[in-house]
């Protein structure tokens, strides 16, 4: 059994201010669940910048190299055939496939990386902490361990309410959230 404390907000601007307030009190926010991408939230939570695009770039580069070297190998050494009087190494005619394959590799690479990093896959059933957080409420999540005292919980709840939370509740989850 995992236990969480959840503060629910109904406005993204209030939420952003609340994040600052809570963090100012040196309380660790486990996660914030939102119904859409709230801009600036990642910075306020101190999340590192996503490096997804760097990965995409290198996968794309690999795809480019594969496409180029494969076609070159096929037409210059493995099975050289003259097509329409063009030289065996007819580079301009390679460009379309090189481009397409680069794009294909980069996007597959990035999408797979995204799904893998976020542990998203078909068949992963997750119960939300509160079903309204994918619709219209913004949830700030705190971990509760056995060491967490009642006073501490109350302090967080109080701070949350003060910062504009419309609801504060505790949840027990079967699986790790």
């Amino acid at each position: 059994m995992k236990r969480y404390l959840l503060g629910l907000f109904d406005d993204d601007e209030v939420l952003l201010k609340a994040v600052d307030k809570i963090r100012a009190h040196d309380i660790k926010i486990h996660d914030v669940v939102t119904p859409f991408a709230v801009h600036g939230l990642d910075e306020k939570l101190g999340l590192r910048e996503s490096k997804l695009h760097v990965g995409g770039f290198f996968v794309g580069l690999t795809g480019l190299a594969i496409a180029f070297s494969f076609m070159t190998w096929v037409f210059t050494s493995n099975w050289p055939i003259v097509f329409g009087g063009k030289p065996h190494f007819s580079f301009p005619a390679f460009i379309p496939i090189m481009f397409e394959f680069t794009v294909l590799s980069a996007s597959i690479g990035m999408t797979v990386a995204f799904l893998a990093l976020c542990h998203l896959y078909p068949g992963r059933f997750r119960e939300p902490l509160d079903p309204r957080t994918t619709s219209h409420l913004f949830g700030m999540v705190f971990k509760i361990t056995d060491e967490t005292t009642q006073a501490e919980k109350e302090r967080i709840a109080h701070l949350l309410r003060e910062a504009g939370a419309v609801e504060v509740k505790e949840r027990e989850m079967q699986k790790h959230y």
Binding site: D31, A37, V38, L41, D42, C118, L120, R124, T134
Partner: peptide, 21 residues
């Protein structure tokens, strides 16, 4: 839904993915 709950980190990666795609 692949188990999406809307974590801040997931949204951040999601934004990055959409932008680069």
């Amino acid at each position: 839904s692949f188990g999406w709950v809307g974590s801040a980190k997931h949204w951040q990666r999601h934004e990055m993915l959409s932008l680069v795609l």
